[in-house]
Nucleic acid binder design. Structure first.
Lengths: 227, 227
DNA sequence: CAGAAATTACAACGATCGTTGCAACCGTTG
DNA sequence: CAACGGTTGCAACGATCGTTGTAATTTCTG
């Protein structure tokens, strides 16, 4: 929501609509950027509003002029971050699946895809820190936030992947009945490393990561490789 | 609620001269039980020591007589909980793999195993709430806690599963080269539902769960089924 | 430039929480 | 019985934090 309405009521006179100012919108973006950084570093409860204000180079009071709540701020930042990471993932798919279409070495292409995919975790550390927050607050989080996050985040990524796999299956590159199931399996066999590392709580060596990816690629090929 | 359990010898305190009184041990266990409940319900930061004391039917001060820290209390409770769940899992394996040995219907046996396995998540809600805490605090958690948890928890379960699979492979029931990889894949294809549900943050319908398990069993059989 | 809107620094309130000290209390033990 | 050690309730300290009010100040717009 780009709600630009001033917080405190105190309407002096009849309601007159005025177009939003120009330069002051930068403040909001600065706040969002700072919030993403500090939330990602400290977590939801760990990040104080004052710390966010300092990071954004903004007064604490200004934050409360733009957002009613700490919770609203988190929601805004988190959903935007999820959408950004989704875009990054679909872009990754688009780039790699171009190579698949040439069908020279499917296994090598899958390996390259897998390696970059697992790299996403370290590429967006702030975002996955936010996801960890969601996981922890899980049952205590408003359901609509969870739902929208799933929609713009993991579900979107999965749907995109399924579509790509469907195309390649049509080309005869894979032997896939249920593209959704195949996408889920590929997500598990590659992206499942987040479960292996418990979302970053357990540190994995590069060798372990490589072994995981290679093993996942082998499995996916055995499951859905051309017959 | 007050169960009288004569636990094993106290390996707790560093005190050499510590004739363990009778009543004291009960208090400690009451505290640990209450802590597990409240930590699981409210999370680490969300659970106040006072709330734990109330749940345990104990004075707040008494908690600090038994544990130096809130953190120490959490560590103790969390590791004990992990060990308990591990025992439950290996027991589950033992029961189900007895059926495998008869080799009448491997797929049905795998399905039964999978269904009960995913049920573990709802069977130990407090424990997985604790795991969620670890995930969130991840980088901010002392490394030795993470390591010991991995050792007595997930790694122990995985090792047990690998051993079982190895035995069945020797019987010719499965075609497995790397039992560790096979165990990891089975863990992913079945236990990976925790990733699907983001450790309980996202609610899954019974139909979704069943579909996940069935699809996982199908995949595992295709990967490692007898040739 | 004038006026309005947004920002800022500052202070303060209220709430929560981890932790400790203390004096009274009670059950077990020698 | 008397002593000892664990327990209890209470109070309090210090710290953090979310949030709001206010008055001064900056910044944009007309």
């Amino acid at each position: 929501m780009a709600s630009r309405e001033q917080g405190a009521g105190a309407a002096r006179g009849p309601g007159v609509r005025k177009p939003p100012r120009k330069g002051l919108l930068e403040k909001r973006q600065a706040i969002e950027r700072g919030a993403r950084t500090v939330f990602g570093r400290e977590g939801y409860t760990g990040a104080s509003v004052d710390a966010i204000a300092a990071e954004a180079g903004v007064s604490t009071r200004t934050i409360y002029n733009h957002f009613t709540d700490k919770e609203e701020l988190f929601r805004e930042v988190f959903l935007a971050s999820a959408a950004s990471v989704t875009a990054d993932s679909t872009d990754l798919f688009a780039r790699h699946f171009r190579h698949f279409a040439r069908a020279v070495d499917v296994e090598a292409d899958l390996l390259a895809l897998g390696r970059e995919w697992v790299g996403q975790n370290s590429k967006h550390p702030e975002h996955f820190a936010l996801v960890r927050q969601i996981i922890t607050e899980g049952p205590r989080m408003p359901a609509d936030v969870i739902e929208e996050w799933q929609r713009v985040g993991p579900q979107a990524v999965r749907a995109d992947l399924a579509e790509r796999l469907r195309e390649l299956a049509d080309q005869g590159l894979f032997d896939i009945d249920d593209a959704d199931a195949a996408a889920r399996h590929l997500s598990l066999l590659i992206g499942g490393i987040t479960l292996e590392s418990f979302f970053g709580a357990v540190r994995l060596s590069a060798a372990q990561v490589e072994k995981f990816v290679a093993s996942g690629v082998w499995a996916f090929l055995k499951l859905y490789g051309p017959s």
